[in-house]
Design a protein around this nucleic acid. Structure first.
Lengths: 139, 139
DNA sequence: TAAAATTAAATTGTACACAACTTAATTTTA
DNA sequence: TAAAATTAAGTTGTGTACAATTTAATTTTA
């Protein structure tokens, strides 16, 4: 028996499973805002930066236009963002918040704390997990 | 500014991004076997257990029948597995390896080592990451 | 400066993921 | 034991993900 091929011994599987579980934890909170987790990530970037190009969002979230374009169209349909081609460079599409999208920030501000509570790790362990994940990401 | 809503300060985002990055690292190796990462996980369970029900696969991989049924049909089409309703309980579908599916294990046995090398963490850090992820999963 | 190369989004096609529901079989229980 | 409840898979519909390609605009360079 090849020990390395046992599910039990995989490092990647728990990360894959955890990623999906985390999104499940977010769901009830995000359901109230009527957005998905990837949509929440986009909103979070825009709450910080207000206007971003599709490219900039993709670089920050590590998602390509094939994922972002339809996702952003859905956020636009919900009235949370505006998509507008740049005058300066017609290839670029600028994404910005509507007043309604900006207002959602107040409704979202309790989510991070609620999530921390449901995760079941100490702050220290959380920091460790974050650092290890980021170290691998930055390879 | 709500610090807790900064992308920079999220614990969940790096895990979500890392999960997708890991699947990217696997891709070239799995392309040679012509399977996807979730399909590889199913194969890994079957290499260990040979026959499993859809339910058992779902419990181990934390995936539901809505995900597994079509995935298993694709593995069957590739000739790697057989889906067969149980005689004892007609609700149950048993998944087992074909000779070709069993043979794939030899071709896969170098993957875990290759992955370890591309991850950029020490064995110690890897163990830590695995343990933290599992601790959160088992909440 | 006109052709070639590059870039930014969008599009197309395949494969998850999962909620909600359906169907059929088996267990439970009244 | 017949009706009710439960269980196992499958189905339907929506929303990611991402490879590969396309389109249109901008830069580079010959």
């Amino acid at each position: 028996m090849q020990e390395a091929l046992l599910l039990e011994n995989q490092v990647c599987f728990p990360i894959y499973a955890l990623s999906r579980q985390i999104i499940q934890y977010y769901r009830p909170m995000l359901d109230e805002l009527d957005i998905t987790y990837p949509q929440y990530l986009v909103m979070m970037v825009l709450w910080e930066h207000d206007t971003q190009t599709v490219n900039q969002l993709g670089a920050l979230l590590k998602l390509d236009s094939g994922t972002l374009t339809p996702l952003l169209k859905r956020l636009e349909l919900k009235g949370l963002i505006i998509r507008k081609r740049s005058k300066a460079d017609e290839r670029v599409v600028n994404i910005s918040l509507t007043p309604s999208g900006r207002a959602m920030k107040e409704m979202a501000c309790s989510i991070p704390h609620q999530m921390l509570e449901s995760m079941g790790l100490s702050l220290e362990e959380m920091q460790q997990l974050k650092q290890l994940a980021e170290k691998m990401l930055n390879r």
